[in-house]
């Protein structure tokens, strides 16, 4: 769906290049998360993929064609939810969606259906200026979906949303994947990336050399160890066991039979740990 090869880009008057040899592929129907510190070039990568930035080095293909070669009809097939709200504040939510729907040339989705999907149906006739930041962000997502796009670019899609609404948004992102949509997402929220992304790439110093599934990354960067906490007379005790031959580890088996076990979990890394390990040395 998206193929970026040896991409480089430097903003005018910038001392260093934002992208320096970035290569990645986003496959059809997958949710790909591009992660990285602030200013690492995540939004720049998305903008190049959307055809909003020219004068980049390398090769960028979207829908199998060079970015920019499809003219403006390209935008009938993509949806973009920016990091900040991009809405007409004096119009209502419904008026906004009807306006944006009219700007596309193909069939569009029912605005009320989209508002309902994101829990905004009761606010359909409310002016956007009266919306909270979280509501605006959800309406932003509705706007991005109005043309029923094949490819979605989501930039920090749950910014400003409370945990319940953020979960609603994440569920919708997964539902979109089930409908066959391809989603290219950027986020700072590692838990979110872990939860929704099929694969993630870490963008550091203009390159994404580490790309894998969240599960593989957590395993690769964690310890193959099981941590067990037990109830002791005065305090809890912590025991760690190597995962290799765990079934034959007598101390572990004794603990299992003792009935004193409180908690037990493997010490694979979280995506936060991987992020810090990979990008931690980079100044924002």
């Amino acid at each position: 769906m998206i193929s970026l090869e040896n991409l480089s880009y430097a903003y005018p008057r910038a001392q260093t290049a934002t992208l320096a040899g970035l290569s990645l592929d986003v496959k059809d129907g997958e949710i790909f998360g591009l992660l990285g510190p602030s200013g690492s070039g995540k939004s720049t990568t998305q903008k190049i993929s959307m055809g909003l930035l020219q004068d980049f080095g390398g090769k960028a293909l979207v829908f199998g064609q060079p970015v920019g070669s499809m003219g403006r009809k390209f935008f009938n097939r993509i949806g973009v939810s920016f990091e900040l709200p991009t809405l007409y504040l004096r119009l209502t939510a419904m008026e906004n969606l009807k306006l944006y729907a009219a700007l596309y040339n193909g069939p569009t989705r029912d605005p009320l259906e989209l508002l309902t999907l994101l829990g905004l149906e009761k606010d359909a006739d409310k002016r956007v200026s009266d919306f909270s930041k979280g509501m605006k962000m959800r309406l932003n997502l509705c706007r991005a979906l109005i043309n029923d796009p094949d490819l979605l670019f989501l930039d920090e899609p749950t910014t400003g949303q409370d945990p319940a609404r953020a979960r609603l948004t994440r569920n919708l992102i997964r539902q979109l994947k089930e409908e066959g949509k391809t989603i290219f997402l950027t986020t700072h929220n590692m838990a979110e990336a872990d939860e929704v992304c099929d694969r993630v790439g870490f963008l550091v110093k203009g390159r994404a050399d580490i790309i894998d599934t969240p599960a593989n990354l957590k395993q690769k960067h964690g310890q193959r160890v099981l941590e067990v906490t037990t109830t002791a007379p005065t305090d809890s005790e912590r025991h760690t066991f190597p995962m290799e031959d765990l079934g034959a580890n007598k101390t572990f088996l004794n603990l299992l039979q003792s009935g004193k076990i409180n908690t037990m979990h493997t010490l694979e890394a979280s995506l936060d740990d991987v992020f810090i390990k990979v990008a931690g040395s980079t100044d924002d």
């Binding site: 709200p85 991009t86 596309y104 706007r143």
Partner: peptide
């Protein structure tokens, strides 16, 4: 100015109409 400051211009840029249109 409002379209630029409040963001709709950015959203219009990713529609077939475009910022220029």
């Amino acid at each position: 100015l409002e379209d630029r400051d409040d963001g709709p211009l950015l959203a219009l840029e990713v529609t077939p109409v475009g910022k220029g249109g």
